[in-house]
Design a protein around this nucleic acid. Structure first.
Length: 229
DNA sequence: TCATTAATAGCAT
DNA sequence: ATGCTATTAATGA
């Protein structure tokens, strides 16, 4: 296995308070792996034997409902911890993580979790902070799904992806990972057909521009207006 | 070029 | 207004 460079972790929130030697310790226990687009890093209900940090790429976190269909709960962007079942006192993963684009992640065995928490200042607080943020976000989208009209939900979903992965391009802000209409419908509880119609209409109005699996928001403000309407 | 998968068009509920 | 079937378009082998 290649020796991992310390610059990979310096500056990332969970490790920002640590010195060089501590980061070295952490890296020496880590395993680095690459995941092709569409690959599962771990699956819902399986034994949580490792926890992860996304270095590069994007992930979809998916949960299946009692009804059998799957919904996209949230996305993970580079620098974030994920699969941190030990923080939830769980020994199985609560959701499935799929690489939305080619991704690279570090992972550690769960048995070192308690060690990390006690030995590395800032790691615990940052981990629980991201955990809390995610719970809040899930709550938000959940109530949104139950109460808001479809157009608003899709507008919100696009805005969320823009916020966590938006890159400026010449046309506007582009979503940095491949997204299908099916994906968006899985995030919003509709069908790909409705999403397709909405995107077509918005494209005509100059709010978005989309090609296959690729979306650019050309008028973010108009989308914000739609999401609040 | 063909097989696979994404996106739309048009009809039904 | 939203969902479904059938068709077209794009992509990658």
């Amino acid at each position: 296995m290649p020796k991992l460079d310390e610059s990979l972790l310096t500056g990332l929130p969970p490790f920002s308070l640590l010195d060089r030697a501590q980061i070295r310790e952490i890296l020496d226990q880590a395993v680095s792996r690459r995941y092709d687009e569409g690959t599962a890093i771990f699956r819902e209900g399986h034994d949580a034997d490792r926890f992860y940090l996304l270095l590069d790429g994007y992930l979809r976190v998916i949960r299946s409902t009692p009804g059998g269909d799957q919904i996209i709960v949230l996305h993970i962007s580079p620098g974030q911890l994920f699969g941190i079942a030990p923080a939830l006192q769980r020994n199985t993963y609560p959701a499935t993580a799929i690489a939305a684009a080619e991704s690279i992640a570090l992972s550690w065995p769960v048995r070192v979790w308690d060690d990390f928490i006690t030995r590395y200042p800032g790691f615990a607080t940052e981990s629980y902070k991201t955990l809390g943020q995610r719970l809040g976000q899930i709550q938000e989208t959940l109530t949104e799904m139950a109460t808001q009209a479809v157009e608003k939900r899709v507008a919100c979903a696009l805005l969320r992806m823009v916020h966590q992965s938006g890159r400026k391009s010449d046309k506007g802000i582009e979503i940095a990972f491949p997204v299908t209409r099916q994906n968006i419908s899985d995030m919003t509880g509709t069908t790909l057909h409705t999403v397709s119609r909405l995107l077509s209409a918005w494209q005509k109005d100059g709010i978005v521009e989309s090609t296959r699996k690729h979306i650019v928001v050309t008028d973010p403000h108009a989308l914000v207006v739609l999401s609040e309407a």
